[in-house]
């Protein structure tokens, strides 16, 4: 429960991990050393560097992690630039959690799950994937298709290689856009790889990545026989308040911060094309 909507809490960055040339993962705890607040997979938080600005980021760590929260952040604007220049021990402010989560306790339960991510799009999915790993018995088979521009741009490569790949009943497919020395896995764009893999259309799919990837991957999934009502994605728009009041992140009558960021494809179909 949020008592103060717009007043954040102070968080301490306890660890900074460089994932790719432009993505870093920040580990954050409260000033008392404990986790700042509880969340569900897919939810976001407003992270701010006072004097620079406040931005919405998805919480990358799984709720099952009792010690800290993590945010995987790509350097692309003024706030992220400052975050990337930050040292361990620096305090920032955090408020949240915001938005609706993936239906991990409802629709996902007992289902085979397909996760498709491109680039930094893995960030919001990592939370779900690790949640699913934690409550492994509640879910069926898990297939992960993850692509990036190059092998260096794959976020969380270590965790993928050492943990996800060894998880029972987990299939992990990696791909990069162009051939690269030392890469013996698949090469090619995510949408075409998805089609090549000929995935089982009874799975519940979760997509996240750049808009163009989502567009073509969705097309591919539909061709494979997936139903839109079982494909999820998560959106991102400019946000200031995080609670559906500042009036800018709406798509039609839905606020991404409050009614999203997780949407089902059939829900998105009903909204005007403005994202």
């Amino acid at each position: 429960m949020i008592e103060e909507t717009l007043i954040p809490k102070v968080g301490v960055v306890t660890d900074i991990r460089k994932d790719t040339p432009d993505v870093k993962t920040f580990r954050v705890v409260g000033t008392d050393g404990k986790k700042l607040f509880e969340h569900m997979p897919g939810q976001c938080a407003m992270v701010s560097v006072p004097g620079v600005g406040e931005c919405m980021f998805s919480i990358t760590s799984s709720p099952t992690n009792q010690e800290f929260m993590e945010f995987s952040i790509k350097k692309c604007g003024c706030v992220t630039e400052v975050l990337h220049a930050m040292e361990v021990g620096q305090q920032i402010t955090v408020r949240g959690p915001y938005g609706r989560n993936f239906p991990v306790e409802e629709d996902f339960k007992g289902k085979d799950l397909l996760f498709i991510a491109g680039g930094i799009g893995l960030a919001p999915l990592r939370s779900v994937i690790n949640y699913v790993r934690h409550y492994r018995e509640n879910y069926g088979k898990v297939v992960i298709v993850y692509g990036a521009r190059s092998a260096d741009d794959l976020v969380d490569f270590e965790e993928i290689k050492t943990e996800w790949k060894n998880e029972p009943n987990f299939e992990v497919y990696l791909t990069i856009d162009r051939p690269q020395e030392g890469w013996d896995d698949h090469v090619g764009f995510v949408p075409s790889y998805v089609k090549e893999l000929g995935l089982d259309s009874n799975m519940t799919a979760v997509l996240c990545g750049p808009p163009i990837m989502i567009k073509f991957t969705l097309q591919g999934l539909l061709e494979l026989g997936f139903e839109k009502s079982r494909v999820y994605t998560t959106l991102e728009l400019r946000m200031k308040c995080g609670v559906g009041k500042c009036g800018r992140c709406n798509v039609g009558d839905k606020f991404v911060c409050k009614d999203g960021p997780v949407f089902r494809m059939d829900q998105l179909d009903e909204l005007p094309d403005e994202y």
Partner: peptide, 20 residues
């Protein structure tokens, strides 16, 4: 916080694009 206007070009401007 201050009033903002959806009529302004920077209202929905993000680091990687603008939805309107």
């Amino acid at each position: 916080r201050c009033w903002d206007s959806c009529m302004y070009s920077d209202f929905t401007l993000m680091a990687h694009g603008n939805s309107r």
